[in-house]
Simulated scan of single mutants.
Amino acid sequence: MPVPPAPVDPALDVPCCPPLTSAELTAEEAVQAASMFRALGDPVRLRLMSKVAAAEGGEACVCDLLDVGVSQPTVSHHLKKLREAGLLTSRKQGTWVYYSIAPAALTSMAAILEIPR
């Protein structure tokens, strides 16, 4: 039986920051952007993000994310850091937790780095 997608919070569907080339970031925007990029600065976290993004239906059970070369507690730690940075959302179903990419997270990060042509 397919797992229903995680609900989308419209408040999360807003980019965090303007492109670097359009205006100077405020201190708050810089802190938020740095948090997202810092979270992806770890190879395990980057792999976890990739696995979640590539998962069928855009959502992955934690049970499918354990094969990244570290222990289960370490996977949980990294997933928590990705959630805290606003890059992943999660929902619990029974004993399992399902993760999905936060709405607009990757778009927001790409927008920050957008270079006008």
Results as ranks from 00 to 15, higher is better:
Ser108Glu: 07
Pro15Glu: 06
Pro10Phe: 12
Met1Phe: 04
Thr89Phe: 04
Gly57Pro: 00
Ala39Gly: 05
Ile112Pro: 00
Asp9His: 07
Cys63Lys: 15
Lys80Glu: 15
Thr74Phe: 09
Pro18His: 01
His78Asp: 07
Ser76Ala: 12
Pro10Trp: 13
Ala27Glu: 11
Thr107Val: 01
Glu56Gly: 10
Ala60Val: 13
Gly41Arg: 09
Cys63Glu: 15
Tyr98Leu: 08
Cys16Met: 04
Glu59His: 06
Leu46Ser: 11
Pro15Arg: 10
Thr95Ser: 08
Val68Met: 07
Ala27Phe: 02
Asp42His: 11
Ala27Asp: 12
Lys80His: 14
Lys51Met: 11
Val97Pro: 00
Pro73Asp: 03
Gly58Thr: 09
Thr107Asn: 03
Met1Asn: 09
Ile115Arg: 06
Pro7Arg: 15
Thr89Val: 15
Gly94Arg: 06
Met49Asp: 10
Met36Thr: 04
Arg38Ile: 13
Met36Pro: 07
Ser100Ala: 15
Ala111Trp: 13
Glu24Gly: 04
Ala105Phe: 01
Met109Pro: 08
Gln32Arg: 15
Cys17Glu: 09
Val52Ala: 04
Ala23Asp: 11
Asp9Tyr: 00
Arg91Phe: 11
Gly94Tyr: 01
Ala34Val: 08
Ser35Leu: 05
Ala105Thr: 05
Arg83Ser: 04
Gly94Val: 02
Ala105Asn: 07
Pro2Gly: 01
Thr26Asn: 08
Ala33Cys: 13
His77Asp: 09
Pro19Gly: 01
Pro116Tyr: 06
Cys16Pro: 02
Cys17Asp: 01
Ala60Asn: 12
Asp13Pro: 06
Ala111Gln: 13
Pro43His: 09
Leu66Arg: 15
Asp9Glu: 06
Val97Met: 04
Asp64Val: 00
Ala30Glu: 15
Val8Ser: 01
Pro2His: 05
Thr26Ile: 03
Val14His: 07
Ala54Leu: 15
Val3His: 13
Pro19Gln: 02
Glu28Leu: 10
Pro19Tyr: 00
Lys80Trp: 03
Pro43Ala: 04
Leu20Arg: 07
Leu87Val: 02
Pro73Leu: 00
Val68Thr: 05
Thr95His: 10
Pro116Cys: 05
Pro5Gly: 07
Val31Asn: 01
Ala23Gly: 02
Thr26Met: 08
Leu20Pro: 06
Pro7Lys: 15
Ser35Gln: 08
Gly86His: 02
Ser22Ile: 02
Gln72Asn: 10
Ala34Phe: 09
Arg47Leu: 02
Met36His: 01
Pro5Ile: 06
Ala55Lys: 03
Tyr99Gly: 06
Asp64Asn: 09
Phe37His: 08
Val31Ala: 14
Leu25Asn: 05
Thr107Phe: 14
Ser90Ile: 03
Ser100Thr: 12
Glu59Arg: 11
Lys81Arg: 15
Ala85Tyr: 01
Val75Asn: 05
His77Tyr: 11
Gly86Tyr: 02
Ala30Gly: 13
Ala11Arg: 11
Ala53Phe: 13
Ser71Met: 04
Pro73Met: 02
Leu106Trp: 00
Asp67Leu: 12
Met1Tyr: 04
Gln32Asn: 05
Pro10Asp: 03
Leu82Ile: 01
Lys81Tyr: 07
Leu48Asn: 13
Leu20His: 04
Pro43Lys: 05
Met49Val: 09
Thr89Gln: 12
Lys51Val: 09
His77Phe: 14
